[in-house]
Design a protein around this nucleic acid. Structure first.
Lengths: 214, 214
DNA sequence: GAGTGTGAAAACATTCACAGCT
DNA sequence: AGCTGTGAATGTTTTCACACTC
């Protein structure tokens, strides 16, 4: 109901999930109930209603939610309609996987350039983009107003890449290197550590049935 | 203090982080205080103490925690000393990245086989392992008692791969494909969606300074 | 009748603050 | 003096349950 005001972090984390669910129901259906959405997202239906209520009064009592309205509102709220530009630094296997990953474009992120300082990789074409040396980072960041830097280098270079990105005015970083980056005021850093996910899984491996954590 | 009993999910998620911090301090130091560890992990120091207290009484009042004891206990608690076997299905860029990812071995996971049904990839060598067709999945899972299946295929194959893995007795799945897998009783599924992370980041992009969410 | 939106309750998580040990 | 371990306080998230709307 609260049109303005901050959305709780726990809700922000679920919004992309709802978006994915909505995409998966396809275009056969025009409306959806909190119950159905909850089943797809594997959460409680009251949770869905509460989460969506932070985006405004989107549903119709007795009926449900209109899928395309819902999609639009979530995208709007997450800032996915702003057309943010991103760069990927490091084009080993992981960086290449990210560069090829179609999900970015579809979801409002434009990868405008790839960087790598390995001479063997410079000037190679990956996913339609030419790999550039990091010396050209500043130029590209200025030209495209790059908002997001994605780090996919080996761990040992990650901090220095982060420093360069911040230096170039990038204020949001998604780090896939398995190191802890120093944090800087006003810079958002999210880290995805592939092996940490496995380690969490491991905890729930031996024992009886326990609820999954997300 | 509670030696036995379940560890809260929120704590389980931080344990791998602490482990990483402890690795990063190196072997120069022998002990560490909750304050120092908290700074590295970017959490509150009371949080660190509370989290660690679930593993037993590990610290020494007035002194701090012994690093190697701490490491051992966390690894033990997470089940990282069990030597779980894992397989990776899908060896595109992402699967290859995962296969090469050193962090797994170091952290107690042995990737015992790679699978892909693309004829161009079968029999290729990646990270010292030969790529096999999924028809050999059952044989490998039995032979090595595979506990974890890592899915790195394109989205359209993910559900069928998951079904096969479950069929072969794998009870824990780490899914990197951007689709929602049906869940099955007694099977742990964790999904890592690379673009979801970006979308969360996006929410915090435009606005003034907001706290990071992890 | 069906399904939203939301107070109120319950569950969970974080942080404070300090007694107690080294 | 320094730092842990933990009750108690506070903050956040989830869930219940139902008044309200279509």
């Amino acid at each position: 109901m609260k049109e303005n005001g901050k959305i709780p972090p726990a809700t922000v984390k679920r919004l992309p999930l709802y978006l994915q669910c909505l995409e998966q129901v396809g275009s056969t259906e025009v409306g959806i109930s909190s119950k159905t959405l909850a089943e797809l997202a594997k959460v409680n239906d009251a949770q869905v209603r509460r989460d969506l209520s932070y985006l405004g009064t989107l549903g119709t009592r007795g009926v449900g939610y209109d899928i395309s309205t819902l999609r639009n509102q979530i995208q709007l709220e997450l800032g996915l309609v702003e057309g943010w530009s991103a760069v990927i630094v490091g084009v080993g296997n992981l960086g290449s996987a990210l560069a090829h990953y179609g999900g970015f474009k579809e979801r409002g992120f434009g990868v405008v350039a790839l960087f790598d300082d390995d001479p063997k990789k410079i000037n190679k074409q990956i996913a339609g983009l030419v790999v550039k040396p990091s010396s050209e980072l500043k130029e590209v960041c200025d030209k495209y107003s790059v908002a997001i830097g994605i780090i996919a280098t080996p761990g040992e270079y990650a901090q220095s890449v982060a420093d360069q990105l911040i230096e170039c005015g990038v204020r949001s970083i998604l780090n896939f290197a398995p190191v802890l980056l120093k944090n800087t005021p006003d810079v958002q850093i999210r880290s995805v550590d592939l092996s940490q996910e496995l380690q969490i899984l491991s905890y729930y491996l031996d024992r009886p049935v326990l609820k999954a954590v997300k």
